[in-house]
Write a protein that binds this DNA or RNA. Structure first.
Lengths: 145, 145
DNA sequence: AACTCTATATATAAGAC
DNA sequence: TGTCTTATATATAGAGT
């Protein structure tokens, strides 16, 4: 959607890449917000900029803790039934060994978060969030790549 | 972008809501993928459908573990410096007590995930992922609402 | 729900500030 | 990076299948 149609490949020129990133990040967030409002759905969007800055978007309208409530009210069985991960694969044999290895590396990090009273400030929470997402993404990668 | 301009508010009709959700989810993912390719950026997108199905999208092109590497190579200080959370607030005084209480409730869940060898199958990982994201969102909510 | 169709609304490329 | 403009590409509303 512009003066020209552009090819879908990595933009090499750094200036152009940053510019496009800004525009598209804005657009993506707007879309996410619209969907959150229209469909009353929760959305979490984490984007790493070309300069590696993590940006977390959290457009939502729910009362505090609603997501967790919803999830904890489901039995494990129900949860499994209702899961619908779009990137699931079933022809690739899952390498659990690798998953475990990767999770092992992160176990020590998680351990430090077990005591909520260590949560002292926003900066710490921010780092925690980021690690949670990293681990999440790591787990996912093992099952997709 | 359709035959009519629509109001930005929750769609009440469940059928219509589902239909819009499907279309927009598709669109949102496409946008996310385009941005990931064009700007060479990592994106994680988690969407809860109107029926509470969590959908995780992970369009990416990076080698395994790259995100985590990048993050673990940064010092804590650097990380704090580089963070750019779009929804940060500094006029709302943060209620740490409430945050701790909520985190406390989830501590037992995290405890079960400490041993990676308990990870037995995809279903389990899926549930783990979801809880991680829930906690993430919960933490975020405390600091936004 | 998932797909098609088509008119219309919206996002954005290029370019300049 | 942010903002504006304009032409054009794309997303999607509404309706039907």
């Amino acid at each position: 959607m512009g003066r020209k149609k552009i090819e879908l490949k990595k933009i090499e020129c750094p200036k152009e890449k940053s510019s496009k990133y800004s525009k598209r990040k804005k657009g993506l967030l707007k879309k996410a917000e619209e969907m959150a409002v229209l469909c009353d759905s929760d959305i979490i969007l984490l984007v790493f900029s070309p300069t590696s800055k993590p940006n977390l978007f959290y457009p939502h309208s729910r009362p505090l803790g609603r997501i967790l409530e919803r999830l904890s009210n489901m039995s494990e069985y129900e949860r499994e039934e209702r899961f619908d991960l779009s990137l699931q694969e079933d022809d690739k044999v899952i390498e659990l060994g690798e998953a475990r290895e990767l999770l092992d590396e992160n176990t020590s990090i998680l351990r430090n978060w077990q005591d909520p009273h260590r949560v002292d400030d926003l900066a710490r929470l921010t780092i925690m969030e980021d690690h949670l997402v990293s681990i999440l993404s790591l787990i996912k990668k093992v099952f997709i790549n």
